[in-house]
Computed example of a mutant assay.
Amino acid sequence: AKNGDRSENGDYLYGKKRLREIDRRIRFLTKRLEIAEVTDPSVHHGGDQVFFGATVTYADDEGEERTITIKGIDEADNQQGEVSWISPIARTLLRARVGDVLQLPTPAGVREIEVLEVAYPAPE
């Protein structure tokens, strides 16, 4: 009685709803695991072109330098300078080379950035 009208089985209905949410999340994560691909960014070690896993240093049109690492959607941590490969900055940088000047679309308008350095982890 303390959980509401017993004739409606509030706890039972809430439990079923919660179980459906959990099942939906399990299906989502299972599908993500099935299509997941392990990549090794160290195969590009020593290269000057930007691919997945690269640590890129670039300068914007105001001369400010920034360093980011291009990671997967679930791995990216903006506080650590890691961006998702689908972010606007990463999509602009992908396939660029050191010295390229690129057009970065931002909410405030298009900005120019220049790729200064590209680094990959050393092979083990």
Rank of each mutant, 00 (worst) to 15 (best):
F52V: 11
V98P: 02
K17D: 00
E8F: 15
I89M: 12
T30S: 15
D74K: 08
I86N: 12
S7G: 09
R27H: 15
D23L: 12
E8T: 13
V110Q: 03
V110T: 08
Q49F: 14
A108F: 09
E114Y: 00
N3Y: 08
N78F: 12
R111Q: 06
A96I: 07
R32Y: 07
K31A: 13
I86S: 11
L104E: 00
E82T: 08
E62V: 00
R27N: 15
G99V: 13
E21A: 12
G47Y: 05
R32A: 13
K2A: 13
P41M: 06
G47N: 13
V118K: 02
T39L: 15
E21F: 12
G99R: 05
V43P: 07
D48Q: 08
G10N: 14
A1C: 07
E114G: 01
V101F: 04
E37S: 05
E64S: 03
S87M: 08
E8K: 06
D48Y: 05
G53M: 09
G53Q: 03
E37V: 13
A96H: 04
F28R: 12
G15S: 12
Q80P: 03
A108D: 15
I113K: 00
A119N: 14
D74V: 07
A76S: 15
Q103L: 06
G4T: 11
R6H: 01
D11S: 12
R6E: 10
L33A: 08
I35A: 13
K2N: 08
D5T: 07
G99W: 04
V50K: 06
A54Q: 07
R25M: 14
Y58R: 01
N78K: 15
E112N: 11
T30H: 14
D11F: 11
Y14R: 15
R91K: 14
V50W: 07
I73K: 11
G63T: 01
K16A: 01
I89S: 08
P41V: 07
G63C: 05
D77G: 05
W85S: 11
Y14I: 14
N3M: 08
G63F: 01
H44S: 05
T55G: 03
